[in-house]
Design a protein around this nucleic acid. Sequence first.
DNA 1: ATGCCGTGGAAACCACGA
Length: 258
Amino acid sequence: MRIATYNVNGVNGRLPVLLRWLEETKPDVACLQELKAPDEKFPLQAIQDAGYNAIWHGQKSWNGVAILTRGLEIQEVGRALPGDPEDLHSRYIEAVVNGIHIGCLYLPNGNPAPGPKFDYKLAWFERLRQHAAGLYSLKQPVVLCGDYNVMPQEIDVYKPERWVNDALFRPETRAAFQELLEQGWTDALRKLYPEEVIYTFWDYFRDAYGRNAGLRIDHFLLNQAMEKRLVTAGVDRHVRGWEKTSDHGPVWIEITDK
DNA sequence: ATGCCGTGGAAACCACGA
């Protein structure tokens, strides 16, 4: 079974790319971020025609998350992180598919830092940690995946020295990610490839993709029951080379069926 | 060191992204 996460950077603007990728790689589950569309403009018909069911949590212009499944039943179990009723950003949706708990998240960017946006990022991170603690302790397998907007270590940045003051790489941000991991979560790609340079994002500027000037910011965290089923993982980096593509590449894990 | 590119939405520019 394949589970993927993909920050599409506009689900309607990138629809041909999304459909081409679904057709080519046929993930059983696809978690999407940055829909940039309100609920009523989610392209459900095209996604159904491609053979997928979907749940989504949209928002006008910004953010937005969705979970797609290839013929599998989706039981939605939550949307929006608990802990702040004033937070109206659509950044989280959670479902159970085939007995697997799947949280799909789009963590705030946080720039410029310091400032209110960075404060919001850290506060969102804290709410995620609180929610994740409960998820981690479940006996069922749990996947917490998406765009974390964090490079966990220097190896995850093409030029770490240029990013030390950026909201994605500041000490507070990396510490927050580390605290999350300390609940017991496994960073699936880093676990499988401890020494590899792996990127999931390449800026549109200055031919960042051609120069492989990338960042690893899209992650799969697995609880113990899920880690036992982990077989392999990867990044569909060639998708980043397509016309009219997102600045992120899709990331995926392959797990045993039971 | 940087929004140089790109999206969405409103208004013919601006907010936002990483």
